[in-house]
Amino acid sequence: MPHILIVEDSLLVSSAFEVIFEDAGYSVRSAGTVTDAIERGAERAVDIMLLDLTLPDGSGLDVLEALRQRSALPRKTLAMTGHGDAATRHRCLAAGCADVLLKPVPMRELLRQIELHLK
């Protein structure tokens, strides 16, 4: 069963994602801070990490860097951002994200992206 780590500081959002992914048959964990996300990411192999860029204790991309140093990078990381500008997109791809999704991602589109990146 593929494992998804949701890194998102809004419980309102992550709780919705949990329902969607569990319903689709994935195992799911959530983290709301950079610290939390590094811990969750390092304790178990992650297939897909959904990464919010704005977290209370830092940038989502800090998570990626910390996991890289621990050799615990997720198989794929999909960044989620409210800003669709080219600079943000470029920054995420340069940091190793497989794609950048513009929030809010419609539910079907989100599931489609997850399936696509799990292949």
């Binding site: 959002v13 919705a16 809010p104």
Partner: peptide, 13 residues
Amino acid sequence: RTPLAAIITHAEI
């Protein structure tokens, strides 16, 4: 945007 996006997603569910 954030809480609104959550409302939409929960309603979609």
